[in-house]
Design a protein around this nucleic acid. Sequence first.
DNA 1: GTTTGTTGCTTACCTTTAGTAAGTATATTA
DNA 2: TAATATACTTACTAAAGGTAAGCAACAAAC
Lengths: 103, 103
Amino acid sequence: MEKMNLCPKFETAFQLLGKRWNGLILRVLFQGPVRFRDISANIPSMSDKMLVDRLKELEIAGLVQRTVFPETPVRIEYQLTDKGKALEPALDEVQAWAEQWME
Amino acid sequence: MEKMNLCPKFETAFQLLGKRWNGLILRVLFQGPVRFRDISANIPSMSDKMLVDRLKELEIAGLVQRTVFPETPVRIEYQLTDKGKALEPALDEVQAWAEQWME
DNA sequence: GTTTGTTGCTTACCTTTAGTAAGTATATTA
DNA sequence: TAATATACTTACTAAAGGTAAGCAACAAAC
């Protein structure tokens, strides 16, 4: 078989996107800036702890920006960066595949 | 925030695609029928055990077909089903994103 | 006729990650 | 005073991932 050149970018990307919950979290974020409870309400099977962990990872990876509004109670908004927004076509393709082929 | 309808197909799809190694394995399978060692040689950081586990899952999910040729030593070929092949546009989009935005 | 090689796995073991349930700090409302 | 809300933490257990070795079936080499 022909030896293909390994693509570390693709591998890294898939380890990020492929990590459980990240696809679903990103899909919620495509709606625009949202708050912690908005995300968790849309993904009821995910625990708060997982959401905290994933949002931190996505922020470090540069896909998500976190903004604090020092009101009471505190309001925190999560929104996609340009890098995060650029993922929309890819996730749309996954969704199209899921609708056609799953079940 | 507007309540979005949960999409279990999308969730299931992403739990499958998002699971570690699956994206990379599928990318190798897009080349055509391949053998166990072809895949493992292309993904050197993955252990045999993980590859066995993932190929079984992908077969059960209907994305991969396994064919045994009873030669000596035995030859086993893995290839994508139509459902598996239909994923190519989605993975291409992920790859395009990775090349533009990673690092 | 015992060793070596090849293939596609298993098995045992240990570590890392995921998941569950409860709790925290801050402040407003009843 | 107690309840409510937000966005997390913490402690714990279960599940998944990762490592290294071994296995069964032959064939060919020595």
